[in-house]
Amino acid sequence: MFAGSMVALVTPFEKDPGGHGGRIDEKALRHLVDLHVKEGTRAIVPVGTTGESATLSHEEHEKVIGIVVEQAAGRVKVLAGTGSNSTEEAVALTRAAQRIGADGALVITPYYNRPTQEGLVRHYETLAARVSFPMVIYNVPARTGVNMLPETVARLAGIQAYVGVKEASGSISQVIDLMDRLEGRMAIYSGDDMLTYPILALGGHGTISVSANLVPRKMADLCDLALSGDLTGSLRIHRELVPLHRALGLETNPIPIKTAMEIAGMIGSFMRLPLVPMDLANRAKLEKVLGSLGIPSGGRR
C-alpha cells in the first residue's frame, strides 16, 4: 500500500517572542506538501518524531494532519503519526487521523513506560481491534527505550490492519531476521536514512526519511531505482548522500534537518523547547556538507 520514498515531514513554526517555535506556519507547511508532490515523494508522514509531535497539543496534531491531507488532495498518500505510550490515546489519535482523511497511520511503540514484548503485542492487538485502518508499526528503540523484536512483529503479521513496519533499530541483522520471519506478509521500511539502501537491496519496500525533507528528489530516485531493480544506480545516489545522512545525526532530530532547511532557504528553523538551535560548530559542519551537495547558504535546490 505504501512504497518508495516517504518523508518524515517537519512541522514548520512561526517564531514566538522568545525566538522559539510558536504557532504552526500553515503557509510553509502547505508549500512543503506541494514540493514533495512535485519532487516525487510517494507519501507524506506528518506529526511523527521529526514533526515534533511531542510538543504539539492534540488540537495542533489534528490541525497538521488536516492541512497535509487537504493540500495533498489525493496527489500523494498521507501516513499520519498517531502513536502514544497510552493505548487509549493511540486509539483516539488513530481514529482522528482516519476521520480527517489520512490514508494510514504510523504507530510508534509505546515509549517511556517500556512495555514487555507481550505488552507490545497486546497494545497493537487492541489498537487493531478498535480501529479499522491501515497502520505501520514503528520500531525505534533509541527513542522509546524498548526494541520490538522480529518475533514479536511476526505475531502481528496476520492482522490485516498492519501493512508494514518502519524499522529503525539500526541493526541490519535484525532487519534480515524480520524479513525471514514475515515472509512477505508485511512491508518493511527503513527508518534510518543511512540504512535505506541496504534495506532496499535486501528486499525492503521503501523508507520514511528525514533527509527527504531537504533532498526529496534524490531520495525518491534512490528508492525508485532500487525498487525497479537498478541497484547500481541507487547505490550511486546513496553514496552521494552518506555525508548528509551523517550530518543530520550531529544533534537530536529534528534540530539538524530544520537547520539545514533554514540554511537552504526553505523554512525557518524555529523549534519548540526543549529543542534549541544547533551548536555553532555543528552548524558549520552542516553548512560545509550542504555546500558540497550544491546547497549553498540562503540558496534553493
Results as ranks from 00 to 15, higher is better:
residue 155 R to Y: 01
residue 155 R to T: 05
residue 155 R to P: 01
residue 157 A to E: 11
residue 158 G to P: 06
residue 159 I to Y: 01
residue 160 Q to A: 15
residue 160 Q to Y: 12
residue 161 A to T: 08
residue 161 A to H: 14
residue 164 G to M: 10
residue 164 G to W: 11
residue 165 V to I: 15
residue 166 K to Q: 13
residue 168 A to P: 03
residue 169 S to I: 08
residue 171 S to W: 03
residue 171 S to G: 05
residue 173 S to T: 13
residue 174 Q to K: 14
residue 174 Q to G: 04
residue 175 V to G: 08
residue 175 V to C: 04
residue 177 D to R: 15
residue 177 D to N: 15
residue 178 L to I: 11
residue 178 L to A: 07
residue 180 D to H: 14
residue 180 D to Q: 14
residue 181 R to H: 12
residue 183 E to D: 15
residue 184 G to W: 12
residue 184 G to R: 08
residue 185 R to Y: 10
residue 186 M to A: 02
residue 186 M to I: 08
residue 186 M to D: 10
residue 187 A to Q: 15
residue 189 Y to F: 15
residue 189 Y to L: 14
residue 189 Y to E: 15
residue 190 S to D: 13
residue 190 S to F: 09
residue 192 D to T: 02
residue 193 D to K: 08
residue 193 D to L: 06
residue 193 D to Y: 01
residue 195 L to E: 11
residue 196 T to P: 05
residue 196 T to F: 03
residue 198 P to Q: 05
residue 199 I to C: 04
residue 199 I to L: 06
residue 201 A to H: 09
residue 203 G to K: 12
residue 204 G to K: 11
residue 205 H to P: 07
residue 206 G to Q: 10
residue 207 T to E: 14
residue 208 I to E: 15
residue 209 S to A: 04
residue 209 S to N: 07
residue 209 S to T: 05
residue 210 V to D: 06
residue 211 S to E: 14
residue 211 S to H: 10
residue 211 S to C: 13
residue 215 V to S: 03
residue 216 P to E: 14
residue 216 P to H: 09
residue 216 P to K: 09
residue 217 R to M: 12
residue 217 R to Q: 14
residue 217 R to F: 13
residue 219 M to F: 10
residue 220 A to L: 08
residue 220 A to S: 11
residue 222 L to K: 01
residue 222 L to Q: 00
residue 222 L to N: 01
residue 223 C to H: 00
residue 224 D to K: 02
residue 224 D to L: 00
residue 225 L to S: 04
residue 228 S to F: 02
residue 228 S to V: 00
residue 228 S to K: 09
residue 229 G to H: 00
residue 231 L to F: 02
residue 232 T to K: 13
residue 232 T to I: 12
residue 232 T to N: 14
residue 232 T to C: 10
residue 233 G to W: 04
residue 234 S to I: 01
residue 235 L to I: 00
residue 235 L to E: 13
residue 235 L to H: 03
residue 237 I to W: 00
residue 239 R to F: 00
residue 240 E to P: 06
residue 240 E to C: 03
residue 241 L to N: 07
residue 242 V to L: 05
residue 243 P to Y: 00
residue 243 P to D: 03
residue 245 H to E: 02
residue 246 R to A: 05
residue 246 R to C: 01
residue 247 A to T: 02
residue 247 A to S: 05
residue 249 G to M: 04
residue 251 E to P: 02
residue 252 T to D: 05
residue 253 N to L: 02
residue 254 P to G: 01
residue 254 P to W: 11
residue 255 I to F: 10
residue 256 P to E: 08
residue 257 I to M: 06
residue 258 K to M: 13
residue 260 A to P: 04
residue 261 M to I: 13
residue 261 M to D: 10
residue 262 E to Y: 03
residue 262 E to G: 05
residue 263 I to R: 14
residue 265 G to C: 03
residue 265 G to N: 10
